[in-house]
Design a protein around this nucleic acid. Structure first.
Lengths: 266, 266
DNA sequence: ACCTGAACACCGTTCAAGT
DNA sequence: ACCTGAACACCGTTCAAGT
């Protein structure tokens, strides 16, 4: 991907640069306009063509500009992709209740261990998880970028803050919260990755989800002792692939929540 | 990555080809030798230089051969990467007890719902999870390939069979098993992805895990309402990054198992 | 301050040709 | 059956030059 990265890397991340890079026009107002347009066009291209179909030259063409113009606004292709990554993270709708406590000016006295209703954090966790899943599935390139870059942009940080705030209401002891977060967060990441890649693959092949699914099952079936497995697969239920995925996702989340509830007692 | 994939794709996966592609020398024995050497060199290169550092031309140079020779053995770069992917999946050690039942000639009468000791499937699940994690962390390129390709090679299928066999012993009803599997499997995938990328990034930057970790925390810290979060992070425990990761991983798995145990009752 | 053109050092892959 | 060389259509990025 980043072919030039074996030479001296210019900057390891946009977010680790000294300058916050909000460019200003004669110290008046942030330009942003072209910057925003570039990121928006990048995301459009990524959605349409995938990560492998994206190039700085294609982007420039899309913007009706010469290949190298973009480099005035953006240091490198990697930085641009990091910006697109964080923009996508910004599409995750955060539960307002979750943002509140952490974003507050300071810890509210006596409310730090306020006994949040279980329903509250259950629902908030479910919302965050399904939002994250939705964004991953909508932008199949997102998962690869999350694996490639650091994901410490402003929107990513807000998301992680919200997730942390929700999990703090689970009642788990402090030293278990990152674990529980990892379980849910990484599960959704993995789930959304597969889902996104699968839909992208379907679109690329011009096939429905069902067609591709059965082709895969067929390919696996005859190379495997499938007597037991087939039973499981059939018990999976749901008529469409989408329904199966929704069921799997929902119940997996139930399992994680049940696990948190169970270990909270001990 | 696959720049040529926007034209007519030659074959969407090695494993979906008609021919099983075990080449034979005059119908005598499988050659395999060069085929194996190519995949081995591919993995060596991927481990050393990462996915972005890998190219067919570099590989050919590594093999002391001209750029196009490899194409006699392998249809395309994507196919070669799929072979490397499955070879890596083959490094996952499977619990023998798990492979047994599924690999058996047929379902053993009366033993289909044999009451496996909880300890058994707990331990087997933990072993599979930590093996998978280990392989993902050792080969940081593996995660990206898993996201890119179908992962239906022979070793991948064996692994999935084993995972299914283990989960069948959990006592969950049949229609919940794929969900439980998704929870654990995708969690480990996500966890191993982050871990692998992080170690790769450290090596590339020539920094220790602790150095990079603190740099990241520093970058996030000042852009965030970190009062609450810091407390969690410190409660995380462990003196090294590795210890933190091990703790998080182990307890997250405990959570998943506890969730399965809890929902099995209902 | 913003954009361009030519150039460099790479890619994956095709294809005709060698042995 | 196996390997090569030249070529095609691409990359990301540098750099000197334009306005």
């Amino acid at each position: 991907m980043a072919t030039g990265s074996r030479t001296v890397p210019p900057r390891s991340s946009v977010w680790l640069s000294e300058r916050k890079t909000t460019k200003r026009k004669g110290d008046q107002q942030p330009v942003g306009l072209d910057h925003l347009k570039i990121v928006a066009a990048t995301m459009r291209l990524l959605d349409a063509e995938g990560l492998s179909g994206f190039s700085m030259r294609r982007l420039a063409a899309e913007l009706g500009v010469t290949a190298m113009s973009v480099y005035w606004y953006v240091e490198t292709k990697d930085h641009l992709l990091e910006l697109a990554l964080d923009a996508a993270m910004g599409e995750i709708a955060l539960p307002i209740e979750a943002v509140g406590p952490v974003g507050a000016v300071g810890p509210v006295e006596g409310l730090e261990h306020a006994p949040a209703e279980p329903r509250d954090w259950h629902e908030q966790l479910r919302q965050l998880a399904s939002e994250y899943r939705r964004v991953l599935a909508r932008h199949p390139w997102l998962s690869a970028l999350l694996g490639e870059y650091l994901n410490i942009g402003p929107n990513a940080v807000s998301f992680q803050s919200a997730a942390l705030a929700v999990m703090r209401n689970s009642g788990l002891p402090d030293d278990r919260i990152t674990s529980a977060l990892a379980l849910v967060y990484q599960f959704v990441y993995g789930f959304g990755t597969i889902e996104g890649r699968f839909t992208a693959r379907c679109r690329a092949a011009g096939a429905t989800q069902e067609e591709l699914f059965h082709e895969m099952m067929g390919a696996v079936e005859d190379r495997m002792e499938f007597d037991e497995a087939r039973k499981i697969m059939e018990a999976r239920g749901g008529t469409t692939v989408q329904e199966m995925q929704d069921r799997d996702f929902t119940f997996a989340l139930d399992l994680a929540i049940a696990g948190i509830e169970a270990l909270r007692e001990r």
